[in-house]
């Protein structure tokens, strides 16, 4: 690779309705969060440039309207994707039912795509006091029996435990995905 590469990558966010896809993008791109739920109609595209190991990556992020089944996602939205973030809502079992099969289906639809799973809305397992405390959020979550039980029930281990509300792991997740996309390109 060139020493200072500047590259564009298409990333799509998928998952059921109201799992927080738009909120994660809003937190990452605009550093904003709103409790108000507005359903995404069709598609919305955003962009953010990140730096990974001296390389610049223009992440062109496609926020695709929520669907429970991956087979319902139109292929014309997914083609040319380098990365997919599959978002689940940790408070709703239905959003991670058959997750392993859904991810497999996505990888078949878009060969070579990097897929990360985001277990979102983790903040809902913590009290306001816990959220306000100086303690590490992930540590607090791992001490929460209910959250640990939920996590154990997810068919495929999530790559990131996130909260669009607090910003937990949001930046890490997008940077991690950008890094994986660059690495897979290097390997390819």
């Amino acid at each position: 690779m060139d020493s200072t590469k500047w590259i564009s990558k298409k990333v799509a966010l998928l998952g059921s309705h109201a799992v927080g896809k738009t909120s994660l993008i809003s937190r990452f791109v605009y550093q904003k969060f709103s409790d108000k739920y507005l359903t995404t109609i069709g598609l919305k595209v955003d962009k953010k440039t990140v730096e990974i190991n001296g390389h610049r990556v223009d992440l062109v992020i496609w926020d695709i309207a929520g669907r429970d089944n991956t087979s319902e996602v139109p292929y014309y939205y997914l083609r040319g994707c380098s990365g997919i973030i599959y978002v689940i809502d940790t408070t709703r079992d239905s959003t991670f039912e058959k997750l392993d099969l859904k991810i497999k289906e996505l990888q078949e639809m878009v060969p070579g795509v990097e897929v990360v799973i985001a277990a979102n809305k983790a903040d809902l397992f913590l009290s306001e006091e816990e959220l306000d405390s100086e303690k590490d959020t992930v540590e607090l979550l791992m001490q929460n029996a209910e959250f640990v039980k939920t996590l154990g029930g997810i068919p495929l281990k999530p790559h990131y435990i996130t909260s669009a509300k607090t910003g937990l792991n949001v930046e890490n997740m997008f940077l991690g995905l950008a890094n994986s996309m660059l690495s897979s390109e290097k390997e390819g």
Binding site: S8, G42, V45, D58, V60, Y77, G80, C81
Partner: peptide, 30 residues
């Protein structure tokens, strides 16, 4: 395929061309 912008020339500089390219490709595909 991807809807990524390959090039752009503007006479008036409207909004981010990458976002327009993505949205246009989405609409076109639909």
């Amino acid at each position: 395929e991807s809807g990524l912008l390959l090039g752009h020339h503007s006479f008036n500089n409207l909004m981010d061309p990458d976002m327009i390219a993505g949205m246009l490709t989405g609409i076109k595909g639909f």
